[in-house]
């Protein structure tokens, strides 16, 4: 029974006393006011959905499913296809996941299981501060620090040694998919780490002790018991990170190169869905151009909503019911 129910029962007995009538009305008003505000959140999400659909209608009607498969983006001829942007968003997010997931797992494990006790707090705060740095500041850092570093130090040796693979072919220009992926990885690592950390903290102590008592090392305990125990929540954290990477705008816009092309190379410039909106929205002159940009936002919205629903369901499952707990 929740606090409110319990208290309403208590108050029911008091209602008849002097002043009880106004108190009752006050409570009714209070309940309805807060309920109204809670409903506003539902309304907000529905309204976003509705408005974005309505505004993308011209583009939806004119281009249909071809919008998703066409690579042409020509505001002058008023022909629009979103495939290059979808490709850029998906590719940069995947690079980010490949880099960020192992890193987040290691960091979270370190913070929860391995770090000396005095280090856990400060290191945890430092990782959380990573998430506090605004996207645009990462973008600035990306333009002037990361991109030159990739251009001069990372990409040339990769091209020399692995250049026979299409993935590592092309000139080292710094801006491009790799830069976007790296910067996204930096931005989602604290998010994924935070979720995994919470998940690992919910793993009961007796699970670790049971494995240790069998003569397992700390690493074996983590690998065989702790991480498997939290796998659903960990997956939720990874998917949540993916959602953030897909929708991230500024830092990507500043380093991805902003060229609507589909190339296999990590070093090639590309364009992302969020970036094209940020760059072209206020300069779009024709109604259909605007509508096409809104349709890109609609796709982004639907995909991130689905991904977030999936992630939250996985994370909620962990935080609510501990799987496999003995029922008593």
């Amino acid at each position: 029974m929740e606090a409110g129910d319990r208290l309403r029962t208590v108050r029911g007995g008091v209602r008849q006393t002097a002043g009880g009538r106004t108190a009752y009305l006050g409570d009714q008003f209070f309940l309805w006011l807060t309920r109204f505000l809670a409903l506003a959140i539902l309304a907000l999400l529905s309204l976003i959905f509705y408005e974005v659909i309505v505004a993308s209608k011209p583009s939806l009607q004119r281009f249909g499913f071809g919008f998703l498969t066409s690579t042409e983006w020509d505001p002058v001829a008023e022909r629009f296809g979103a495939l290059p942007f979808i490709f850029g968003t998906v590719a940069s997010s995947l690079i980010a996941l490949i880099l960020a997931v192992p890193l987040s797992l290691a960091v979270a494990t370190f913070l929860v299981e391995l770090a000396p006790w005095w280090l856990r707090g400060p290191a945890g705060v430092a990782v959380e501060l990573l998430a506090a740095i605004p996207s645009v500041v990462y973008g600035l850092w990306g333009i002037f620090v990361l991109v030159p570093f990739l251009r001069s130090t990372v990409e040339p040796p990769l091209i020399r040694s692995l250049g026979f693979l299409p993935l590592f072919r092309g000139p080292a220009i710094g801006v491009g998919l790799l830069a976007a992926g790296v910067i996204l990885a930096i931005m989602i690592t604290p998010i994924i780490t935070a979720v995994i950390r919470e998940v690992l903290l919910t793993v009961p102590r007796h699970q670790r002790e049971a494995m240790l008592a069998l003569g397992a090392t700390r690493w074996e305990t983590i690998r065989l018991v702790v991480l498997p125990y939290g796998r659903a929540g960990i997956l939720g954290g990874v998917i949540l990170g993916l959602g953030r990477a897909l929708g991230e705008t500024m830092a990507v816009t500043m380093v991805i190169g902003n060229r609507p092309e589909i190339a296999l190379s990590l070093f090639a410039p590309a364009y992302s869905m969020a970036s094209v909106i940020a760059n072209e929205f206020t300069e779009a002159t024709s109604a259909i151009h605007l509508s096409a940009l809104v349709e890109i936002a609609l796709i982004l919205f639907l995909v991130t909503i689905l991904i977030n629903i999936l992630a939250r369901l996985l994370i909620w499952r962990v935080s609510r019911a501990v799987p496999g707990a003995v029922r008593e």
Binding site: P204, H206, Q207, E209, A210, M211, L212, A213, L214, G215, A216, L224, V225, P228, Y229, R231, P323, G324, A325, V326
Partner: peptide, 27 residues
Amino acid sequence: VRRRIGMVFQRPNPFPTMTIYQNVAAG
């Protein structure tokens, strides 16, 4: 030490992600 001195805990704590066989074989 723990390899030679085993322990059973207050509450049953099998590993939930493992099968019966894997639980016994964990050590």
